[in-house]
């Protein structure tokens, strides 16, 4: 196990290169370039915020911030995991020809995704200032919360990417499941909106805890309570370790499933 990390460390230049390629190439020929990564979710946010605060009328205070925080948390996990699912298969040319520790690919894709999303969270922070919320000391937890998101999605990505190598349908299935989960998670609505007798279901939705955890420092303006932070820590650990286990068990044989 230890040698794995040493090896990964010796490939850090490659990791940085892959991340920067990932960021650089995505928008090389577009005029607004990197800005799209921000414009896109902001537009989505605007749309949702208009629909659900003006048209459907949820009675949530500072709905835009509530929604923004939820959306930022959700996109962080959902978008990055979906993209990272293809990380091994998309690099099959390389994997079949040169030895590289395979962990590098999902990590690079995921990290590039997170760089985009962290920028989104920073914008979120300014939004909340703009909307008159004054963040307090709980803000120091924000980096840790993002880190938890990162390792949670890394675990998912490792599992998905391993599965994708064997069956190429995984990416589509993952996308569909996430689509359904988007509505099953209190992102655009709040927990109160659900009928009392179904509310317990939410405790089985891991995304509920992550979405809420990000809302604490920027929306609730408080430290996340134990019933949120506990599950977040637990889920992160389980996802990361399980993902790593699955990935490391299969990575030697990936090459046989790639063409």
């Amino acid at each position: 196990m230890r040698s794995t990390w040493w090896e990964l460390l010796s490939y850090r230049d490659l990791l940085f290169n892959l991340i920067s390629i990932e960021l650089k190439l995505r928008y090389r020929h577009s005029v607004l370039g990197f800005l799209w990564q921000i414009i896109n979710p902001l537009f989505y946010l605007l749309l949702l915020s208009i629909v659900f605060s003006r048209v459907i009328r949820f009675n949530i205070e500072n709905y835009t911030i509530y929604l923004f925080a939820g959306l930022a948390s959700w996109l962080m996990i959902q978008q990055s995991s979906v993209v990272a699912t293809g990380s091994i298969v998309n690099n099959q040319g390389l994997i079949r020809k040169i030895y590289i520790p395979k962990l590098i690919f999902p990590v690079a894709v995921l990290t590039a995704q997170y760089i985009d999303h962290v920028i989104l969270v920073i914008i979120l922070f300014f939004f909340s200032l703009f909307f008159g919320l004054s963040p307090n000391g709980s803000l120091v937890l924000l980096p840790l919360i993002i880190l938890a998101h990162y390792f949670f999605s890394l675990g998912l990505s490792l599992i998905f990417a391993s599965a994708q190598v064997k069956v190429r349908d995984v990416q589509h299935i993952v996308a569909i499941i996430f689509q359904a989960l988007f509505y099953a998670t209190p992102i655009i609505y709040s927990l109160d909106f659900l009928p009392e007798k179904f509310r317990w279901l939410m405790y089985f939705n891991p995304f509920y805890y992550f979405v809420e955890s990000l809302r604490y420092p920027v929306y609730y303006l408080a430290f996340p309570p134990a019933h949120i932070s506990g599950p977040v820590i637990g889920l992160t650990a389980v996802s990361f370790l399980f993902g790593l286990f699955i990935f490391r068990r299969g990575e030697k044989y990936f090459v046989f499933h790639l063409s």
């Binding site: 490939y11 940085f16 290169n17 390629i21 190439l25």
Partner: peptide, 18 residues
């Protein structure tokens, strides 16, 4: 095999090196 076709020769030298 180490090359990324989208990158320039110079960029690829660094990529392949890494």
């Amino acid at each position: 095999a180490a090359f990324n076709p989208e990158l320039t020769g110079a960029e690829n030298i660094y990529l392949a090196g890494s």
